[in-house]
Amino acid sequence: MAKLLRATHVPAPRELPTLADRVEGMLSRAAARGARVPDGLDSILRRVRARETSAPVLTHHDVWPNNVIDDGDRLWLVDWEFAGAGDGMFDLATVARAANLDIDGEHAMLEEYGLPGGAHRLAEARWSIGLFEGAWALAMHTARGSDGGFDFARHASDMFAGLKNVPN
C-alpha cells in the first residue's frame, strides 16, 4: 500500500479541495440540514488547515479496504469521490488505522513510503481522521438518518469525542 500511495501522491492541481475544505463542506451541509455542529470544531479545523502543506499532492482521503482491489498482480485504488489536495500522510494514516498497525508496522510503512522520520506527522494525520470521519458521519446522518444498519450520529459523536486527544 505504501508503494501504491507513493505512486499516486503526485503534485495536485490547484483547484482540488483540501481535507479542511472537504470537512468544512460536510459540516456546512450537515448544519444546513439542521444538525448541531459540536462546539470547538472551528479551532480543530484551523489546526488541520494550519498543517496543510505548501506543496500538496493528490490525495485519496478514503483509503479503506473497500476501496482497494487486489487483482493478484497489483493493487488498485478505486472510488476517488473524496480525492483532493493535501499531505499524503492522511492516506497513510488511514491505512495504518484500517490495518490496525502497531508502532513497528507504522515505521515499516513510513520506511516503505520513503518517510522514515514521519512518525509525528503520521500521528497528527491519524488524529485528523476523527475530524474527517465525524464530519462525514454527521453529514450522512442528516442525509439518510441513522435508523438503518449504521448509526451515523453515534459514529460522529465518537469521532468528535476522540478529537480531545490531540497529539503533541
Rank of each mutant, 00 (worst) to 15 (best):
D151A: 07
E133W: 14
I69N: 07
S128D: 03
R126Q: 11
V68S: 05
V68E: 05
D147E: 15
R121H: 08
E112N: 12
S157Y: 06
A7M: 10
R49A: 10
R46C: 06
D42V: 10
R6L: 05
G162C: 03
L163T: 02
A96K: 00
N165H: 13
W76I: 07
A125S: 09
W76Q: 06
R6W: 04
A139S: 15
A2Q: 03
D147K: 11
A98Y: 09
V166M: 06
G148F: 08
A93I: 02
G114C: 03
A135T: 02
T59V: 14
G40Q: 06
N168V: 09
G134K: 00
D102F: 11
P56A: 09
I103K: 14
W80M: 05
A98V: 08
G105T: 12
A125V: 00
A7S: 13
A139V: 08
H141Q: 10
R47L: 08
D158G: 07
F150A: 08
L19A: 12
E15F: 15
E111R: 15
F150W: 12
A55T: 13
M26P: 05
A35N: 06
R126D: 00
L131D: 01
V95H: 01
A119F: 13
L58A: 04
D151M: 05
M26T: 08
L131C: 06
L101Y: 09
A98P: 04
A12L: 07
M26K: 15
T59H: 04
A55K: 13
N168K: 12
G145F: 08
V23Q: 02
D87W: 00
L58Q: 02
L122S: 01
H107L: 15
A119C: 10
F132P: 00
V48S: 01
M140V: 10
N100T: 14
G148Q: 11
D62W: 03
H107M: 14
I129W: 02
H60L: 03
L75S: 08
E15R: 15
H120K: 13
L19C: 12
F152E: 01
G130D: 03
R49T: 03
D21L: 08
L131A: 05
E24D: 15
N165E: 13
L41K: 03
E24V: 11
E112W: 07
L122A: 03
L92K: 01
A55D: 12
N100L: 14
V23A: 03
M159I: 08
L122M: 09
G145K: 09
L122I: 08
L115Y: 07
T18K: 04
R154F: 10
G148T: 10
G25H: 06
H120C: 09
V23S: 01
F150P: 04
G86K: 00
A108W: 05
G149S: 13
R29L: 14
H60N: 05
A153I: 02
P38N: 02
A98C: 14
A2K: 02
R22D: 03
E81N: 11
S28G: 15
W64Q: 13
E24I: 09
S146P: 01
A99G: 14
F82R: 13
L163Q: 03
H120D: 14
A98W: 04
Y113F: 14
L45K: 00
A31G: 02
I103P: 11
A135N: 02
A2F: 02
A93Y: 00
R126C: 04
N66K: 13
D21Q: 10
N67R: 04
D79E: 03
A35D: 05
K164R: 15
D71K: 04
A98R: 10
